[in-house]
Nucleic acid binder design. Structure first.
Lengths: 131, 131, 131, 131
DNA sequence: GTGGTCTAGACCACG
DNA sequence: GTGGTCTAGACCACT
């Protein structure tokens, strides 16, 4: 798997890993049951600290996107992915809200915003068939 | 102005202030030229330190949403608000991407997402006339 | 005299006044012996505080660009303007240095810098005949 | 790194630090990727508060001269330095203008000014090879 | 009165 | 160990 890290970003590295893996799942490049690299391997591949990778994996487990077994290590969730329940949608809304507010300040129309998110959505989702 | 802070949130207080003011501008509850409370006043109103408020104001100034002068204090930008230029849209896209990826993991359809963001957009924008 | 103030600038207003008057002298729009507006008049014309204008005038007097008499009020220096002595050149150099250093960081050539300052120099100086 | 501070100067300490580092970059005593002292170290070396150093570093980051990450601390920008674009040249011009105007008041010729700035330019730039 | 600067000391997140 | 955040309190410049 290719994970692009930006060590200069103000986004914590473990968050970048989480995001990268989530995008991998969304793109269906990572399938349920598929094992992720071991903490040691990924850390050395990325040239970062063990703890950082571990923290990312723990967060993914916590949110229900992966399972951690002794045998197989870390694998993508084989049971159902966490659902888009009301609680999640509310959290998502709270994350979206300040982004939308700032966009409105900059006079973006709803159409422009929808267009932008559709573009990104399709770019992620559309990768399904090809990759 | 009504600014709801969550001191327990992992979102820095100064960011919450920035977001709150941006939403106030988006809602047109704050108009160009309108003065914001002085750092000392807002700090004591919110029960926080004046440096925290100042940091929020500095960020808003830096991003072009407010102007600061020693006489009037801090006022909403009277010249044009910063535009939704390509650079901004790219930044917005990068903020949107992980949110969309996670939503896709949870099997949200594009329609559901669009519906959610439209709801929030209209909730903010729709406040224009009423408040 | 036309003095353009930017109340939003982070340059103090009294400094803007000093700069404006110095540029007026450089452009020879203000001649030795010519009276400047009274503190009260200029303050009310510019819509600013008396103290602010006074501070600017005091600084100009301090640096030898104007004289202050009871009768005529504030007039442009009739004796010789302060000379470009070694002390002044050193002060100027210290002001120039950080500007040049930053320009070098941005890979400006000496020629580009000389061109820029010549342009400004001639723009000010060239106004002599016409205005 | 040698940073000379004048605590009595009316130039803020954090600005002096910024200027000193910019000059270090211009002199090529500081190379891209090279780490700067940690805020705590530099603060104790200079005998000032760490927040003052931090403010300087934040400004340098904001202007694109350094990168900050939690692992390495603060390092000189490894990507391209910010360019001398039109916006920068305009800002530079506005900083140069009052200096030139005052020099004209003191009857400095364009040649004298060019000579002075060339001297400083070469003094900074000429340090490249030697230091 | 305003914001700007500086100091001092604390705790936390990240790696 | 690093920087990030927050608090607290001081003095100064500007208006």
């Amino acid at each position: 798997m290719l994970l692009q890290l930006d060590l200069q970003s103000d986004i914590p590295i473990y968050t970048q890993i989480v995001n990268g893996i989530l995008e991998g799942i969304a793109r269906k490049q990572l399938h349920p049951g598929e094992p992720l690299p071991s903490v040691r391997n990924l850390a050395s591949d990325l040239g970062i600290n063990l703890h950082t990778v571990n923290k990312a994996y723990q967060q993914l487990k916590q949110e229900g996107y992966v399972q951690i077994n002794r045998k197989q290590g870390v694998v993508i969730q084989t049971a159902a992915m966490p659902p888009a329940d009301e609680k999640y949608r509310q959290k998502l809304g709270e994350q979206l809200r300040p982004l939308l507010a700032e966009a409105i300040c900059r006079d973006m129309s709803l159409e422009q915003l929808q267009h932008l998110s559709e573009e990104i959505y399709r770019e992620i989702k559309g990768a399904e068939a090809n990759e």
